[in-house]
């Protein structure tokens, strides 16, 4: 196949792949009666948002972060407190949570301007722990007792208090995140992020303000994690510091790597595998973590770029769009 037919093929797969995925997600609750399965799928939607937002940081910008659960916790606690103590509706609380996640990202992004790789990992890991320990010790968060009775989202008379209604809300948010990051991947902003990832000196020489992009990658990652946090708080109606452990940050990180770093579909696949597989493997009882570990080792050996690593499902769309720009440029050449 030549470049052109590959691009065309990828475009068709990408477009209809996402469409099919959306249709399946919409139809699932009609055919699945078990609340348990729907429950797991809501969890997957939330992990999709988290993995996709971490991807902006790690996949696009190349900044390793092991503190994503911290942003998630910030969003969850801010939303919960605003709803419980200040009587905010879910929707306003959600927006404030996203803003708080964004600000927390900027705050953590400032040290990131000077740090890279393993050093940055340690700082972000510290951030995740600080948030958790704050939640554990502050008066307002009620420490390890957590915050119970968080209200459900409402629109007029309709209350999102069933698994199925939250399922639709969370997947809508997940698709919003997927769409936003997908658009970002092919925008000027996204290209600048990736240029910082690939070669900082070269990016600077083209006039890219590296500090701005590094900090804003954290901000955007934190913002979507804040969204996941608000949804999570409202869905489970109870949050405590135990929920937002380091193991969750690591888990989100693995989802992104496993699915395909820097791709759009990868983190979604990773969320399905790492949030869904442990449930499917429940029959193996204590062996399931071992099985999961072995699976990850095997994947990293045979597909080091992640399952979708070499196949960027947004690539086709990009090429078709680019071809239009190209044709016009070609006419200038000849």
């Amino acid at each position: 196949m030549n470049d052109k037919s590959i691009a065309l093929f990828e475009n068709v797969v990408t477009k209809y792949g996402w469409l099919l995925f959306i249709i399946i997600i919409i139809l699932v609750p009609r055919f699945v009666i078990s609340d348990y399965v729907v429950h797991v799928l809501v969890l997957i939607a939330l992990y999709t948002i988290l993995a996709e937002s971490l991807n902006v940081l790690v996949g696009f910008t190349g900044q390793f972060s092991l503190g994503h659960a911290g942003f998630w916790a910030v969003g969850a606690y801010i939303a919960a407190l605003l709803m419980l103590r200040a009587g905010f509706s879910f929707w306003t609380a959600c927006v404030v949570s996203m803003a708080a996640g964004y600000l927390a990202g900027l705050f953590l992004g400032i040290p990131s301007m000077r740090l890279k790789g393993d050093y940055l990992c340690i700082v972000t890991l510290g951030f995740g722990e600080i948030v958790r320990i704050l939640a554990m010790n502050l008066e307002v968060t009620r420490g390890p007792m957590g915050l119970p009775g968080i209200p459900s989202p409402e629109i007029g008379e309709f209350v999102f208090d069933t698994e199925k209604s939250m399922y639709y809300l969370c997947w809508a948010a997940a698709f919003l995140t997927i769409y936003a990051t997908g658009r970002m991947r092919h925008s000027k902003f996204g290209r600048a992020l990736m240029s910082v990832r690939d070669d900082e000196l070269a990016a600077v020489s083209l006039g890219v303000n590296i500090a701005y992009y590094k900090v804003h990658a954290f901000g955007i990652g934190g913002m979507f994690a804040g969204l996941a946090g608000a949804l999570y708080a409202s869905w489970t109606t109870f949050i405590s510091p135990d929920v937002f452990q380091f193991s969750d940050s690591a888990n989100i990180f693995c989802m992104m790597i496993l699915g395909g770093l820097g791709t759009i579909a990868g983190p979604v696949l990773g969320a399905f595998l790492l949030a869904g597989l442990p449930e499917l493997l429940r029959g193996f009882a204590e062996f399931r973590l071992i099985a999961l570990g072995l699976l990850m080792i095997a994947l990293m050996i045979y597909r080091p770029g992640g399952i979708l690593g070499s196949y960027d499902t947004a690539g086709g769309v990009k090429k078709i769009r680019r071809r239009r720009i190209e044709r016009e440029a070609d006419t200038n050449v000849t």
């Binding site: 000027k188 290209r191 990736m194 990832r197 690939d198 070669d199 020489s205 083209l206």
Partner: peptide, 30 residues
């Protein structure tokens, strides 16, 4: 760099995971 001084650093520093066209688009960043 924005004042019109374009450095081409030593060692062919392309953005390896961007396409040629995307590299050129980065060149037109401003």
């Amino acid at each position: 760099a924005r004042m019109g001084i374009a450095q081409v650093p030593e060692g062919r520093r392309v953005f390896p995971r961007l396409t040629v066209l995307e590299n050129l688009e980065m060149g037109a960043y401003m």
